[in-house]
Design a protein around this nucleic acid. Structure first.
Lengths: 205, 205, 205, 205
DNA sequence: GATGAATGAGCATTCATTCAT
DNA sequence: CATGAATGAATGCTCATTCAT
């Protein structure tokens, strides 16, 4: 399972095996039953450990969700940066953002599913500020990259609308895929979705 | 409050006053605290009634959520149909779908916020089939309208991708607005979002 | 259904039709679900009437159970008296008590089932005294009949033990039949059970 | 109290002290108030523990009742086996079954009272199959013992009737004693009840 | 008389979290 | 470090009963 590799990358070493087991089990439970309905006992039962151990490693249920969530953010960022590094124009940059997102969701459907349901929960919890800071950093990073390209298409579009224009359709399709409403992998539509995003931006120039 | 008018339209008459009160209060609570965290007692306290009465009218908490949710679907459909009736071409049809959605969310932010958080809950609950049937009906209706236009842009696009291409960006912006990440009303971007959707479709022709 | 005839005998007339309907439905519910688990709404739903109407006719749930229970006692007494009237000796009297009981349970399994589960409930409720008085009266009646026979077998047996010796085996078998543990009708064992009861009494003479 | 010793035998050890306390308190409450009317809070209040702990040990109220009920079955079986081991003929075997039952009820009136009211509850609950299996096993065991005696009295009687003939009168008297209708201890009538049972069987030979 | 909306005390049960062993 | 017994506040829900229409 792909999610397992992500966890091994984030929490390497043999000592962290139990930690990864707990996170992996939690991910499965959260996706199968939902965040609130999943109990610590559910998780304890499915990975052979004790209640106390889960609390030892993650402080509380919220901490477990947050740990998993920040894993997701890190892994997404890794792929996005790789894609952006290879882009040589504004158009390629937009295609990179769309492509990185589609590839990540296609490779990590379990993590993506979790991300959608956990976002609002983390945003309300005590880790809210850490999440906000990460978002700001990500936006700044993307913004700076875009500025380097000084493309008319980017500057003419209303800044508030920009992220939705670029990623909105891709995200919408990914939601549909994860919920089973459509069958084709998001990555299969990499080209048209990138092209559509760029076409959307061109209407302002 | 706009939501109140929607409820009066859906549950007319003086006898249904209490029913509307309960739904209105529930809507407020759900949006302020979330679905799970809102307790029946929270609702009972804020509209002058009894716990038993809420159960008498809605069977259980799930039923209350579902009643509110189907209200939303009905009201959205009403506006969408009005928009579609006035459209005279495929391009106008796409603009109608985008415009109807933007206007509805802008007019009913409370109901829209509720819809986003309640959808997955209803989709898992005992009303899942009713929801699925309504979705099918809506898609069929839109599909038929589109067929009448026999526009190259529509037929050339992958059917699975079509809904995301049309509504994805608008929905993305509405989410951003409802969560406070952007300030401008969705309706303010009616023209560019409609234009972007149409431009996205044209890439296939 | 046999129980229906019993109710018609106890509550005759067309005006009492609804009353009989309610009692009949209650009987079915009580036997299917148990006394406590059956709700007034269950009964209301299954015979087309209103909650208020049930309360109008029977005061409350306890009153409904008691009405049904005293019906049972009356009907049992009717048959027992007929049997006793025909008996011409102590031995025939014992056979009459056993036979009357077996025939009644075989004819009215639904009422018998109800009687077993309702007895302790009525004995604790506000009708406790009425029940006790009826029991005393029945015992006096049987006792007087027995005295007329002046049979050694009856007088030699410990009075406290007498009822159990006479009816214990028959009742035990009826319980087994009503709970499905045995298949043959109680009435099929009328002769051996009467004979066994009399043999039991003879050990004292 | 005798029931306490039974519980110590069934759940030995110091670690199980609280478990025994809960069961003992539950027994008292169930007998004083009835099964349904007894609440978990009643039990919690009378033995120093917490609601959650009762659920931790017994899963739910039904589980608590079942645990107590199977205790009763085990303890009854223990005494019955001891009695049967000492019997040297069919007549002694019948006397053993009657005597073991009378002694057990006389020694454990609280457990016996509980058994009478809990049986139907357990028979309907999720432990129904376990109960049925235990009953089958007990009947098989008694049946095998009886076969060894090859007594005319046993083989001539209708098999379905046999248990009622043997134990019916004793059970009837025990019910009367437990409900206060008679004063003399069941064990006081050990001899006549055993004799009556055997006389009942002899009518077939 | 008939109806069913309304009441609200009361119950079984859950579950995150702690802490003694 | 690991365990799981213990805690108890909190919640959804039930249901007998009342009473205005």
């Amino acid at each position: 399972m792909a999610a397992q590799e992500v966890l091994e990358r984030q929490f390497p070493g043999r000592r962290a095996q139990l930690k990864r087991d707990i996170l992996m089990t939690a991910l499965t439970c959260f996706n199968e039953q939902g965040l609130e309905p999943t109990t610590i006992l559910d998780i304890r039962t499915r990975c052979a450990t004790s209640v106390g151990n889960i609390y030892h490693h993650f402080r509380n249920k919220e901490g477990l969700i947050a740990a998993l969530f920040f894993c997701v953010l890190d892994d997404q960022a890794r792929l996005r940066e790789a894609y952006l590094d290879a882009a040589r124009s504004a158009e390629e940059g937009v295609a990179a953002l769309v492509g990185a997102y589609l590839e990540w969701v296609t490779t990590e459907p379990e993590l993506a599913r979790f991300q959608f349901q956990a976002r609002s929960s983390v945003a309300k919890g005590p880790q809210a500020e850490e999440l906000a800071e990460r978002n700001r950093q990500r936006n700044r990073q993307i913004h700076e990259w875009m500025l380097h390209q000084s493309a008319r298409e980017i500057h003419a579009a209303p800044p508030e609308l920009l992220p939705s224009l670029i990623i909105g359709q891709a995200e919408s399709y990914c939601r549909a895929w994860l919920s089973g409403r459509v069958a084709s992998q998001p990555l299969d539509f990499k080209a048209p979705l990138a092209k559509a995003a760029w076409a959307s931006l061109r209407i302002f120039s």
